[in-house]
Design a binder for these strands. Structure first.
Lengths: 123, 123
DNA sequence: TCGCTCCCTTACTAAAAGGTAAGTACCGCA
DNA sequence: TGCGGTACTTACCTTTTAGTAAGGGAGCGA
């Protein structure tokens, strides 16, 4: 239901890549899986402070359908599911690195040029 | 009004960078301005098929506030406004290049693996 | 037996993003 | 006098995205 067809005719590569990483937590999921290699559902949940179970499931399903993550289900009785990055997920993460570096530079610029207070709102 | 505070405490650089490029047309605007150097409002509108005036204005304003585009207004009588990328806009575009390349590869994979037709709908 | 953990699913609701359409002020052209 | 072009702004509505809350089935400790 919530599954939109997506994968429409893309105008450029950015467009196609954004289609796959747009979503509030997808970047973080990618990061977590890259940093830890393999993670269980509940581990991811704890690693992404504030994510709801619904969104985590939904994003993981979409990323699985997009070939970014691998989902391994163990037919045990306390159910166990392990998530890891596929090769495409790893290359995507690599491709995101320069963007992350740009973002970090930007955070530094904001802090120095505009002296934006990001801490406690009424401190 | 539509201006959300944004610039919240970011978790990582990707987060900060995404805050700045998330928006249906921002990637394309960046691309257009990078390709042409300087563009007028109506030129951008024609270059982004399907964009509404409202969205184009809104995105350009946000990108200006984020220090990505420069806006030059000429006090002429048919009003003339020219947009161009700032240096930060250029570096952002550079940082997006690997992601674009990844997206293009992905489009190729989809085309071969799933045989999705992405070409001109009616010739 | 109760409640806890695990990994989800479903329904409902709120917020954000985006689209449509109209209005603004000025000019040149026919 | 009316139309089109320029660069927007505003109001209203729809779509998309995300959050909240609840349930489900099975084992395990108290």
């Amino acid at each position: 239901m919530a599954e939109v067809p997506r994968r429409g005719p893309y105008i450029c590569g950015i467009d196609a890549a954004f289609d796959v990483v747009s979503g509030k937590w997808k970047g973080l999921i990618l990061w977590e899986l890259d940093a830890h290699g393999v993670r269980r559902f509940s581990e991811l949940r704890r690693g992404l402070p504030g994510v709801s179970e619904k969104m985590l499931t939904q994003h993981l399903r979409e990323m699985e359908a997009d070939g970014l993550v691998h989902r391994e289900v163990y037919a045990e009785v306390p159910p166990r599911v392990e998530y890891s990055l596929t090769e495409h997920g790893h290359t995507l993460n690599k491709a995101l690195e320069p963007l992350g570096a740009w973002g970090i530079e930007r955070m530094g610029r904001e802090g120095s040029e505009r002296a934006v207070v990001v801490e406690t709102p009424h401190g």
